[in-house]
């Protein structure tokens, strides 16, 4: 019973996703591109950077990158905490 409900839910989600993919705009013809054109035109005069992706990553949307670096730091802290040296090593007396 549980499996039947899961299969039904999966099929419904799959159908909606296929419907959305078919109804998307054609590949390679975006509609909203003002912000990206601004970034492309402004990257060399303002930032003197050749690689526009790096300019977006570290200047225009720098707060995203700050959050990303913080997430990586927190993940490492989490791994160090989960896998730390416990007192009872070996697992037989957990």
């Amino acid at each position: 019973m549980k499996k039947a409900i899961a299969i039904l839910a999966f099929l419904i989600i799959f159908a909606f996703l296929i419907l959305g993919a078919v109804e998307m705009r054609p590949f390679g013809e975006p509609e909203q591109e003002d912000m990206d054109d601004y970034f492309l035109g402004d990257s060399q005069p303002h930032n003197q950077v050749n690689n526009v992706v790096t300019a977006v990553l570290f200047d225009y949307r720098g707060l995203d990158t700050l959050g990303e670096a913080t997430i990586l730091f927190s993940a490492v802290v989490g791994v160090l905490t989960v896998l730390r040296e416990t007192q009872k090593k070996g697992g037989e007396d957990v």
Binding site: P30, M35, D36, F39, V52
Partner: peptide, 21 residues
């Protein structure tokens, strides 16, 4: 368009971090 590429880069690194955790 460069913005989506930058967002993908962010998303890949976050994916690596969450997968490690």
């Amino acid at each position: 368009m460069p913005t989506a590429h930058a967002l993908t880069l962010t998303s890949i690194v976050i994916g690596v971090a969450t997968t490690a955790l």
